[in-house]
Design a protein around this nucleic acid. Structure first.
Length: 571
RNA sequence: CGGGGCGUGGCUCAGUUUGGUAGAGUACCUGGCUUGGGACCAGGGGGCCGCAGGUUCGAAUCCUGCCGCUCCGACCA
């Protein structure tokens, strides 16, 4: 390919709409253009990158026995109604109707479709296990699409589904996929971590997420420096903290005018935040008020709360709801004296139950209680692990202090068990002649998001730095002056030789000043740049600059090919 | 869903307060010159000023509605 022909319109300035680095650089480097909010065209360079990621994914899926197929993007409502997700999925599902007013959706995922497909044609244990996958567009009408390809409404995903006879088989399939995913992201040249995850709305249990480590990551992860524990912070468990017992003092009411936050209250009363109980009010989708209690210096893990309460949605209660239910305002909430109240659930973190003579809101403006003793002064409906893990909290496996990091979720593996096979009657006849539901797993990789994540992890002030395995081209050949026939002849020769030896190379034959071509090369992020200028001509040396390190190397014309091949192995 | 900001040539933005012939930089085209990190000179094309109504002799500018983009928020008490 020649740059003079290439459709890669680079921008000198960053478009105002782009917030995160990957989005900015993809627009500037001429990789993507927006069609609508969260919907993008992939330009030729981006398409090459995506194809490379897909190729790696295919090879690894196939190596584990996966078989590629293609299912419809447009899916009839009926199968979603059978699993109940037509209603559960909510606003996030793109829905449409045909001319007969029949309902369809654009697939946000394909459990229903694949399970319906398989149940029709798999009858015997002899046909199992089965691993089927596809790579195609998915559609989710995100509340707030943002960050370019990181959170789009249309995105490319690889989704594989496994069907097994029993849980032992599922474990095996799951482990194969876990292994395949590790290989995929390693081959893409990414720094990543597999972490234990909550299984979320898809259902099932047993799940890992594959996180590309990056500052801009939306997910918080924790990992242990001592053992191999790593988890999404939504998932990370915590054991209750043991506290010394104290003599229980009588409950006391304290005036705390204007003191709303834990910091204000504890300072005002000259106590440590660890002696306070924080009360957060949430509302479920059914209108129940949930009061979540954690120690003042702790944070609530909303996922844990959601799972415990067992509702579909949970959001912070607004001022009105709080006043109506408790006659109080945020800042002065507490669990005391609420027993027997209709439509209120009190959920306490286990550590709270070990506290003595604590301070909490009195459900009265400008007032707190002191000497509150859980169990004596209030009895929660649920006591559980509710805390959000923080840096230096003890590892749930070995107790060593955990570290925190940010990650971009690029893949997730789930054990679904028989959730979908049961609701969709995907059964088989086992060796014992009994009819059983297939045991399923599902495994996704965000292909377009992986491209974005690769940029978030690999860039500098000049542009993108592609890991060689997913770079659109391995090398760019830049003749300093296109008008210089000797330079051009050499550039053409090098360009041809590189491509002939399997190194994907682009020739920047544009009649531009060298600075322009260098800037574009850096912006687009080819791993290697080969400059053909007076130096190369006069000294007979091939000059190679490594994008990642800035290192400049010179090779004789006889051995440059071998050297470049060697260089690329480590990029 | 709530709130703020923004919509002017492909991109970045000025002009809107105080209504009066639509601008700059960059990008693009032509010619010249130049060629080791986004040069320079000359000439040129390109805009229903987001859309629809309204006020006015006259609207990018004022008013109303809608649409789009973007950020923040959805109360961590």
């Amino acid at each position: 390919m020649r740059c003079s022909q290439l459709f890669a319109p680079t921008l000198r300035e960053t478009p105002a709409e782009a917030e995160v680095v990957s989005h900015q650089l993809m627009l500037r480097a001429g990789l993507i253009r927006k069609a609508a909010g969260g919907v993008y065209s992939y330009l030729p360079l981006a398409w090459r990158i995506l194809k490379k990621i897909e190729k790696i994914v295919r090879e690894e899926m196939d190596a584990k026995g996966g078989q590629e197929l293609a299912m419809p993007i447009m899916q009839p409502a009926e199968m979603w109604q059978e699993t109940g997700r037509w209603n559960v999925y909510g606003e996030e599902m793109f829905r449409l109707q045909d001319r007969h007013n029949r309902n369809f959706c654009l697939g946000p995922t394909h459990e229903e479709m694949i399970t319906t497909l398989v149940r029709g044609d798999v009858r015997s244990y002899r046909q199992l296990p089965l691993m089927l996958y596809q790579i195609q567009n998915k559609y989710r009408d995100e509340i707030r699409p943002r960050f370019g390809l990181m959170r789009g409404r249309e995105f490319i995903m690889k989704d594989l589904y496994s069907f097994d006879r029993d849980e032992a088989g599922l474990d095996e399939s799951y482990n194969k996929m876990y292994d395949a995913y590790s290989r995929v992201f390693t081959r893409c040249g990414l720094s990543f971590r597999a972490v234990e995850a909550d299984s979320g709305a898809i259902g099932g249990s047993g799940s890992h997420e594959f996180m590309v480590i990056a500052e801009s990551g939306e997910a918080g992860i924790v990992y242990c420096g001592k053992c191999d524990y790593a988890a999404n912070d939504e998932k990370a468990e915590l054991h209750p903290i043991c506290l010394p017992s104290e003599e229980q003092l009588p409950l006391d009411e304290k005036a705390t005018p204007g003191m709303k936050t834990i910091a204000e209250v504890s300072q005002f009363l000259s106590i440590s935040p660890e002696k306070t109980i924080k009360t957060l009010a949430y509302r479920t989708d059914t209108g129940t008020l949930v009061l979540a209690l954690v120690r003042g210096d702790h944070e609530v893990n909303e996922i844990k709360l959601l799972n415990k309460v067992g509702c579909i949605q949970l959001e912070m209660a607004n001022e009105e709801a709080i006043t109506q239910a408790l006659g109080s305002r945020a800042g002065y909430l507490g669990p005391v004296g609420l027993e027997g109240k209709e439509n209120i659930i009190i959920v306490a973190d286990a550590t709270v139950m070990n506290m003595n003579n604590a301070v909490c809101g009195a459900n009265k403006l400008d007032t707190h209680y002191s000497n509150v003793n859980p169990g004596r002064d209030f009895k929660p409906s649920i006591v559980t692990d509710l805390r959000l893990i923080q840096e230096n909290d003890p590892c749930p496996h070995c107790g060593a202090p955990v570290k925190t990091a940010r990650g971009i979720e690029v893949g997730q593996v789930f054990k679904l068990f028989t959730k979908y096979s049961t609701s969709l009657q995907a059964t088989f006849i086992d060796v014992d002649s009994k009819e059983k539901p297939m045991v399923m797993g599902c495994y996704g990789i965000g292909v377009s998001r992986t491209m974005a994540a690769a940029i978030e992890q690999n860039y500098d002030k000049n542009g993108i730095i592609w890991p060689a395995p997913i770079a659109p081209y391995h090398a760019v050949v830049v003749p300093v002056s296109t008008k210089d026939e000797i330079q051009m002849a050499l550039a053409e020769k090098i360009y041809t030789e590189l491509n002939a030896s399997g190194i994907e190379t682009i020739l920047d034959d544009r009649n531009e000043r060298p600075g322009v071509k260098f800037k574009d090369a850096d912006l687009i992020g080819y791993p290697l740049k080969i400059t053909i200028g007076p130096k190369a001509i006069n000294e007979n040396l091939i000059e190679v600059k490594v994008r990642r390190t800035g290192e400049v190397l010179y090779y004789g014309q006889a051995e440059y090919l071998a050297n470049i091949k060697e260089l690329l192995k480590n990029l």
